[in-house]
Design a protein around this nucleic acid. Structure first.
Lengths: 145, 145
DNA sequence: ATAATATCCTACCAAATAAGTAGGAAATTC
DNA sequence: GAATTTCCTACTTATTTGGTAGGATATTAT
């Protein structure tokens, strides 16, 4: 499951995506409108900035903006950044690989299935972007492509 | 990610699958051979018994056995049992549904993507069984079907 | 019966992670 | 230089995870 932090991150990013091209958005603004604890949100946004998907400006007229267009920000990127590995086992993770301790062949059958699962998941999360989740909201449930 | 507990569960189940049809297996046996802390394993096996995928017998000649053939035990069942929800968001879980708090439309675009992801994952995990992960081990990496 | 063998049950404990807070420093604008 | 706003360091608290302890209960064998 995605952590609450990750869900906050997505809410905030959605907000920023909706305001993309209209200048910086205040943390306090996002916090109020999306009901995210202010100080916690500060941390989250700052992390994402350091990771290179947001930009910030201090002082009056400052705030946060997406560093790239919403359709360039993959969901997989956000999840890895805020939530961690996407795979179900460490030994199958592409970005957070860790050898399983006592990795006898015992769970290697499992491993293979988990690799397949990871691929299926990634196929979706690498394709879908912030733009997709904003678009679908605005288009409503009826307009499924 | 699957918890360590879940990984232990799979290791134990794999062991039981390999010994299927040869009578009860001792906890202590599984514990030693698969390197799983004994008392912890006790709890795990007992949980799975209560959930109906294992049977047990007390006293001499006792131990645990799979309640059904390995090819009848789906990976999704085990994961849900020991690890919890398979979906990435509570509001998208089939077996552990919980309404997201402040479920404004904000993350409903996200929700839709997460539903698709869940389906892709389940398509695999509902199909694959203990038999599959045991088979693949014995057949080795070369014999992919 | 009773001893031996195993699982079952209740409760506890410690470490790690998640979630959130506090307070001030640093940069920018007016 | 005052106001605004992000940035940084550190702390606190709650929850989950991973495990342990010790005895109760059921079964079998002698």
């Amino acid at each position: 499951m995605l952590s609450k932090k990750t869900q906050y991150a997505f809410r905030a990013l959605t907000h920023l995506a909706e305001n993309y091209g209209e200048g910086p958005v205040l943390i306090s603004d996002i916090s109020e409108r999306r009901k995210i604890p202010l100080k916690f949100l500060e941390n989250i946004l700052n992390e994402m900035k350091k990771a290179g998907i947001l930009e910030s400006k201090k002082g009056k007229g400052g705030g946060y903006i997406l560093k790239m267009a919403p359709n360039k920000i993959k969901l997989s990127t956000v999840i890895r950044l805020v939530n961690g590995p996407i795979a179900l086992l460490p030994c199958v993770s592409l970005n957070f690989y860790r050898k399983c301790d006592d990795c006898d062949e015992t769970n290697c059958g499992l491993r293979r299935v988990m690799a397949i699962t990871r691929d299926a998941t990634l196929k979706i999360l690498e394709k879908k972007t912030l733009a997709d989740i904003v678009f679908e909201e605005q288009a409503g449930p009826k307009t499924l492509r």
